[in-house]
Simulated assay, not measured.
Amino acid sequence: MMSEFPGAPTGPRNGSRLRVLAAMSGGVDSAVAAARAAEAGHDVTGVHLALSANPQSFRTGARGCCTIEDSRDARRAADVIGIPFYVWDLAERFREDVVEDFVNEYAAGRTPNPCLRCNEKIKFAALLDKAIALGFDAVCTGHYAKIVTRPDGSRELHRASDMAKDQSYVLGVLDERQLAHAMFPLGDTVTTKEKIRAEAERRGLAVAKKPDSHDICFIADGDTQGFLARRLGTAEGDIVDTSGARLGTHNGAYGFTIGQRKGLRIGTPAPDGKPRYVLDISPVDNTVTVGPAEALDVVALTAIRPRWCGAPPAGPGHYTAQLRAHGDDVPVTAEPSGDELRVTFAAPVRGVAPGQAVVLYDGTRVVGSATIAATERRSPAPAG
């Protein structure tokens, strides 16, 4: 299955003609992106990233993007487009930088986003570095985001023209150098998934009707808690309210996220009869604290390891922030300070968990992102 690329493609560089490496997952978006890049006159080579050491022959439902079936779908699409195609084995790098990071973050009581980590460490680090070393000018993906080139030649990352499909949040980890070598052919036009599928069908791409992948690609059955239990084992702990009263037990604090309501298995109702939510996860004593929804109100946060899509802000400024892949924009004031970022919300927000990414926007432009380390709540949570 694995084959190493023997060298960079040959061909003249005429005007804006670029040597492009198209990352092809086997899905419809990346196939159409590669086709558009080729149609634009670029010298395109397709590559499928083998990210699983033991890929399944067939996907489970619509989940996953690393199976043998996906590799074959990508190869067939490349054949139709008429571009060379290779498979690169990045399974070990993916295991270390994405899967192990995911497990370790949950074990520490945090909630990671593996898609951001994959974009940062795999698609626009390992893959891009290898592509540049082989003489390519750009890496092309099927992400819905837009790159704007300024008069001075610098590049900015912006939201996709179609806000319903925008994926700029998971690309907020890209720095200026990576943006200089990125290409997102799907982000410049207002489109829908139905139109992309129709375009794929017109182009003769068999993936036109292929289901989208969902959830986490390396957890094929979608059972995140089961995956973590197999990796971390089970350990019974207490579920308590904010007064410390024991309400129930669990099999591992890693199975919970801040703001979670379902699956708490608390036998006794709250005194006020209202639902309770996860407020805190303590891996040290394996305790999960629950309480009312209003106790989730966050007014500020501190984030670490900021990554800027261009020059970092010189001081405090007013922005909007997105806190999850499909979350809404919220107005904030943000101030970078060395390796930290302080974000203050104009109005309290809920469901903010350490380990998640906060991505800052100036209008549609992505300013940068950072990993949430701590949150500040509006007031101490009442008991219950």
Rank of each mutant, 00 (worst) to 15 (best):
A206E: 14
I196R: 06
G244C: 08
T189I: 15
F218V: 05
M183T: 03
H214K: 11
A245N: 06
Q225Y: 01
A180M: 03
F227C: 05
G222H: 05
P185E: 08
A235C: 10
I196L: 14
E176P: 00
K210V: 07
G248T: 03
G233Y: 09
G233M: 09
H250A: 10
P211L: 10
R230S: 13
L174Q: 00
H250K: 12
H250N: 11
F218L: 07
R197E: 07
S168W: 00
L174R: 01
H250L: 11
T234S: 12
E201V: 05
L174E: 00
K210E: 06
L186V: 13
V190E: 15
R202I: 05
D175G: 13
A220V: 03
E194L: 11
H181L: 01
V240I: 15
A235K: 14
A206I: 05
G204E: 08
A235F: 02
L174C: 01
V190T: 15
T249F: 04
T234Y: 02
L247M: 05
I216Q: 05
F184Q: 02
G204I: 12
S213E: 02
A200I: 12
Q178L: 00
R231Q: 15
I216W: 03
D188M: 09
I196H: 07
T234I: 09
T191A: 13
R197P: 06
D175H: 07
